[in-house]
Design a protein around this nucleic acid. Sequence first.
DNA 1: ATTAAAAAATGACATTTGTCAATCTTAAAG
DNA 2: CTTTAAGATTGACAAATGTCATTTTTTAAT
Lengths: 222, 222
Amino acid sequence: MSLKEVIQSQNFFRSLSEKDIDLLCEITTLHHYNKKFILYYENTSSKELYFLISGLARSYKIDKHDNEIFLHYIYENSLISEVSDLKSSSIYAYSNIELIEKSQILKIQYEKFKRYFLDTNLLCQEFTQEILNRSHQLQSLINREFVFDAVSKVSMMIYDDLEMFNKLKRHDIALMLHIQPATLSRVLSRLKRNYIIDIIHGEVIIKDKEALCAIYKDKIDD
Amino acid sequence: MSLKEVIQSQNFFRSLSEKDIDLLCEITTLHHYNKKFILYYENTSSKELYFLISGLARSYKIDKHDNEIFLHYIYENSLISEVSDLKSSSIYAYSNIELIEKSQILKIQYEKFKRYFLDTNLLCQEFTQEILNRSHQLQSLINREFVFDAVSKVSMMIYDDLEMFNKLKRHDIALMLHIQPATLSRVLSRLKRNYIIDIIHGEVIIKDKEALCAIYKDKIDD
DNA sequence: ATTAAAAAATGACATTTGTCAATCTTAAAG
DNA sequence: CTTTAAGATTGACAAATGTCATTTTTTAAT
């Protein structure tokens, strides 16, 4: 697929005329990376806007003790870069971005993109929506991390997406929830001890859905 | 000051024509509140967009143990509401908003605002910038909370804004940094014991600016 | 200057979660 | 079916911070 075809296939750009797409092509390059590639590191700047065409990425930070803190996934067909100021012509990275699947990335010259497509309101709404999505992810993260303790985090994840929970390795779930595998293991055995879940051949089964939900919903009567 | 004059005085609306401002006036109301008023609670929905004209507000959440978690201040001349999706016609509150000074608030009918001013790209860039500002505040919060321990948080605050630190009550600083007053007190005496700061009549004085900065900058060689 | 109230500091202790090594379990490979 | 390696669990312990009551200090009011 050519660059132009790739761009045309993306929802984000569907409002553009063919002429505008040609213009976009001139300031854009398409890149292919294998999984595990680090796209960029936190606290660095870039002149290019990154957009994930296909594949999967994750955003994470490093804490004081050199532990990784998983922030969120970035799914295909969405903006990767974390824009912080419309007035600035470069992009500052708050987090590290690692590709966790073979991915296709668009790199767009930000300054020109801004001038041709944002200042003229061509893609302004789509752009804003992308930023809102990212903001929403951060809000969820804050919820999970500040409001919830380890038991709540695990309960919520099991309640919300049991399938994913059972598919992933315990180690990866722990990383996502920002707790240690040992802690996750202890939380699970506690939930089992209280007859809220059961674990058969390593697979989690919900036994008391209400109680599970109550763990993280009922902040008050705890 | 009339509603129209208030709107015209705001930077956010300065790109609007007089005709557009009249239109905006029709879907907007101006409200005055005293300090301590809770503007809205988390997990509620609204059909109106709130905008802080003058005064000061703070955004906070309540954690599992009924502790308040200070998120950030909201300064005058900025959007209060936390928009999460351009496609939705209502606004969902992620956090509680309390006014901490006597304030003037604009309440704008969101659906109409969206149709007249966002969908037509009239205020799209200003709106996006507001969302970016909020996003930036959340990023800073995540940085502080995940990456920093109590000593780093306090050091950074003293280094960045000693004046504010000395002006505020210890209790309020603790709330902002999301630590207990007792912990703050212990951190301060530790910094004093290490000759990094001094405390005279309750006022903090920096004695070793480099060491202070090093505490939170050098994540690696710790 | 004295007193009352508010704010801050301190001590004792609890709680949560992390750390790390040892052990057990499961799944994969031969 | 056995062997091996990865993954998960468990125990022992440590670290950071929270909790709460008590004491001290500071500030404000009389």
